[in-house]
Design a protein around this nucleic acid. Structure first.
Length: 357
DNA sequence: GTCCCGGTTG
DNA sequence: CAACCGGGAC
């Protein structure tokens, strides 16, 4: 099948099936960029409300650039991959303060922006500026590998390169943005990962995978995820209406988000036995009113299974001064309910806080 | 429960 | 090239 026939069929399918999404039918690079960052590693249904909230809070890149980091992170709460939010803000500031508020217009320049890789640069360049550069996301891998029978490993650097080159050989010079949207939408709705309805597909006759019975095995992806088990002992320490929190550091999950003081064990046994590691320390600084064992939460991520046990310590108001000293010596913070609400927390912590009362 | 999905970065 | 998150399908 020639590139022209392929793109024509994809575009025709798109004209019949395209979803009406708020970031379509705009050429505004800010809106396109925002939607693409949110949609990285994220389904449309999950990202849509976040997109709307960001756009409502920050109608322009200037608004976002001038917003406090804490607010940017809080708006991202629950969406995952929090480095995207940090990069979003850093990029907004760069564009506002360095680029004079004007988005760069070419793939070459766009790809230099923080949080903008090959895919996102191609999306912005083609959607906003009509540059004929192919987007290659998970949808495109799937469509091209099946239709044209490309069996290269999409998890490897070399495989990705082959798909990128192939995709760029297909892209029509007129309306490349429309075509890019079309092939991704085709992958998202028609050529879906599992059990696609090939009978209704306009490319069925000429599709390699369909003809060879290889729909279930293409695209080929080598990755094997090794899941790490972790055991968190959390101390939920409250004093009056205030809560002890700490900000998570670099080099681990939930970077920059807020959770509670914790001890991590390597064995489940330790988690079950070592209940009150914080008890002694807290007991030293003042009287603990109540200690309540909460049940253990199992938090499943792709690469980690986290077993989190929460113990709630209620510290007497009379020991507040001592608690404050301990909190600051450990690099923690004692915050009121309003502040706690305003900070970005991981889903696990939100689950606990919601269930706790 | 288990498996699967997905862009960028250090 | 491994690490980063959460949700949805089955």
């Amino acid at each position: 099948m020639s590139p022209e026939v392929f793109s024509d069929r994809i575009l025709e399918w798109y004209s019949l099936h395209k979803r009406d999404l708020p970031w379509r039918n705009t050429q505004n690079p800010y809106i396109i960029w925002l939607s693409e960052i949110i949609l990285q590693q994220t389904r449309v249904a999950q990202g849509l409300p976040y997109f709307e909230r960001y756009l409502e809070n920050y109608p322009s890149i200037q608004d976002m650039a001038l917003a406090p980091e804490e607010e940017i992170m809080r708006l991202w709460q629950g969406l995952g991959y929090y480095s995207r939010a940090r990069n979003l803000h850093a990029c907004a500031k760069d564009i506002h303060f360095i680029y004079g508020g004007v988005f760069p217009e070419s793939f070459q320049e766009l790809v230099k922006l923080k949080g903008v890789g090959n895919y996102t640069a191609a999306a912005i360049a083609s959607f906003a500026f009509g540059e004929p550069v192919a987007v290659v996301d998970g949808n495109v891998f799937r469509v091209l590998s099946r239709v044209f029978g490309i069996a290269e490993d999409i998890a490897s650097t070399g495989g990705k390169k082959i798909f990128e080159n192939f995709a760029n050989g297909l892209i029509p010079k007129q309306n490349p943005g429309e075509y890019n949207q079309a092939i991704m939408e085709f992958g998202a709705l028609q050529c879906i990962p599992k059990s696609p309805d090939c009978a209704s597909c306009p490319l069925n006759q000429s599709c390699f995978a369909s003809n060879k019975g290889m729909v279930a095995v293409l695209p080929f992806k080598s990755k094997k995820v090794k899941v790490k088990e972790r055991y968190f002992q959390y101390a939920h320490i409250i004093c009056g209406g205030d809560t002890v929190i700490r900000q998570r550091g670099e080099g681990d999950i939930w970077q920059g988000l807020f959770d509670f003081p914790l001890v991590e064990y390597s064995e489940n046994r330790e988690l079950e036995e070592g209940n009150h590691l914080f008890f002694e320390e807290l007991d030293k600084i003042g009287t603990i009113d109540v200690v309540i064992d909460q049940h253990t939460f199992k938090h499943i991520l792709t690469h980690q299974r986290i077993f989190a046990k929460f113990v709630r310590f209620e510290v007497k108001e009379s020991a507040r001064t001592e608690l404050e000293a301990w909190v600051s010596s450990r690099g923690y913070q004692l915050v009121d309910a309003e502040k706690l609400e305003a900070l970005a927390k991981p889903r696990l912590i939100l689950k606990y806080l919601n269930e706790e009362k």
